[in-house]
C-alpha cells in the first residue's frame, strides 16, 4: 500500500528525455505489446463478425453488415435459451458446492492435531487436481456405471436403491453429476487458499476463547470463519465473474444424447454452431453475449460488496 502511494506521488511525465533514457526498457517492451495486440486484441476486434454475415471467402472487410440480425436469431432459438439456463444453473451449482466443500475441508483439516496425518490428507486432497478432465470424466463414468459402478453397488447394498440406476440417462441427475465431479477434483486445491488464510489468524484469539471455555465448534464459528471472511468474499467476487466460464470440458465429455437438453452450455453451443456448422457470426454473437453477462456479473458482485462494506476487487 505504501509503495503504491509513493508511486503516485512521483508520477512520471512522459518526455522525450525520459524515452531516450529508458530506450532499453522500451525496446524490450515493444515485442510484448505487439504480441498482446495480435493474440489478445485482434480477436477482440473479431467481435465485428457478430454484426456481419461473415463468410470466410469475403473476410472481415468484405462481409456484409446485418446489424443485430444474428442476435435476434440467437434469442429466437429456444435451444439458446435452454443453453443459457443450463450454463447459469451449472455455474451456480458448481460455485456453491465448491465453496462449501473447500471451506469445510480447510476448516476440518485445520483441526487435525497430528501433523503427519494432516500432511497425508492434504497431499491426497491435491491429487485429483492434477488429473485431466479426460481422466476424471473417465473415472466418473466408471464409478457411476450401470454394471460395475461402485455407487450403484453401495446404494443397492444399503437398500437405498432397489436396482442399479443408469445415472447418465436421466436429465435430472446431470447437473449434480457435473457439480460433484468438480467437488471431487477441486476441493483439496480450492482449500489451499483458505488454509493459508486460517494460519494467519492470531493464535491469541483461540487462546482467549479457550479461557472463556469455548469448545472447538464455537471457536470455528466465532474465530475461524470470521477470520477467513475477507478471503471468502474476494474469491466469491472473482468466481462470480467466472460462473459462465465453468461450462465446457466436463459437460462436453460427460454429456450424451439422452441428456442433451440439460448438458449443452454456451461454450458448447458456440463450438457447435461456430466451428462445426460454420456459422462464425452466430458463434461470435453467442460468445459476446457470454462476455457481456460475465462483465455485468462482476460489476454487480463488486457493487454488492461495496454496499455491504466488504473488500472488493476494483
Amino acid at each position: 500500500m505504501a509503495k503504491r502511494a509513493k508511486k503516485t506521488r512521483q508520477k512520471q511525465k512522459i518526455t522525450l528525455k525520459q524515452i531516450i533514457k529508458q530506450k532499453e526498457l522500451i525496446l524490450i517492451s515493444i515485442p510484448f505489446v505487439i504480441y498482446g495486440i495480435i493474440f489478445y486484441y485482434v480477436p477482440l476486434a473479431g467481435w465485428v463478425m457478430a454484426f456481419q454475415n461473415y463468410k470466410p471467402k469475403y473476410g472481415l472487410w468484405e462481409s456484409p453488415f446485418v446489424g443485430l440480425q444474428k442476435f435476434e436469431r440467437l434469442f429466437s432459438d429456444p435451444n439458446f435459451i435452454k443453453v443459457i439456463r443450463n450454463t447459469l444453473c451449472m455455474g451456480i451449482i458448481n460455485l456453491v458446492l465448491s465453496f462449501f466443500f473447500s471451506i469445510l475441508f480447510a476448516i476440518l483439516l485445520n483441526e487435525v492435531r497430528i501433523r503427519s496425518a494432516k500432511k497425508f490428507v492434504q497431499t491426497v486432497s491435491y491429487l485429483p487436481h492434477f488429473l485431466s478432465w479426460i481422466i476424471v470424466t473417465g473415472i466418473v463414468h466408471d464409478v457411476l456405471s450401470l454394471e460395475n459402478g461402485i455407487i450403484n453397488q453401495v446404494l443397492v447394498a444399503l437398500h437405498i436403491l432397489e436396482k442399479p440406476i443408469n445415472w447418465f440417462a436421466y436429465p435430472k441427475y446431470f447437473w449434480w453429476i457435473v457439480g460433484f465431479s468438480n467437488v471431487w477434483k477441486e476441493t483439496g486445491w480450492g482449500s489451499i487458499i483458505y488454509l493459508s488464510a486460517i494460519t494467519s489468524i492470531s493464535p491469541d484469539l483461540y487462546e482467549a476463547a479457550a479461557m472463556d471455555g469455548a469448545g472447538r465448534l464455537r471457536k470455528i464459528w466465532h474465530i475461524t470463519l470470521p477470520g477467513i471472511k475477507p478471503t471468502i468474499f474476494i474469491l466469491l467476487l472473482i468466481n462470480i465473474g467466472n460462473v459462465l466460464n465453468a461450462g465446457f470440458e466436463v459437460q462436453y465429455l460427460l454429456g450424451n444424447g439422452l441428456v442433451q437438453s440439460v448438458s449443452q452450455t454456451i461454450d458448447i453451443y458456440v463450438l457447435k454452431w461456430g466451428i462445426s456448422q460454420g456459422d462464425y457470426s452466430l458463434g461470435t454473437a453467442a460468445g459476446i453475449f457470454k462476455s457481456l453477462v460475465s462483465i455485468i456479473l462482476i460489476w454487480l458482485a463488486n457493487s454488492a460488496a461495496k454496499a455491504a462494506g466488504e473488500e472488493r476487487m476494483f
Binding site: V42, P43, G283, T284, G287
Partner: peptide, 16 residues
Amino acid sequence: VVTMYVSGGLIPTFLV
C-alpha cells in the same frame, strides 16, 4: 490485466 477479463472468444481466436 484487461486480457484476464475480456477475450475475443472461441471463434475470433480460431480465425486469428
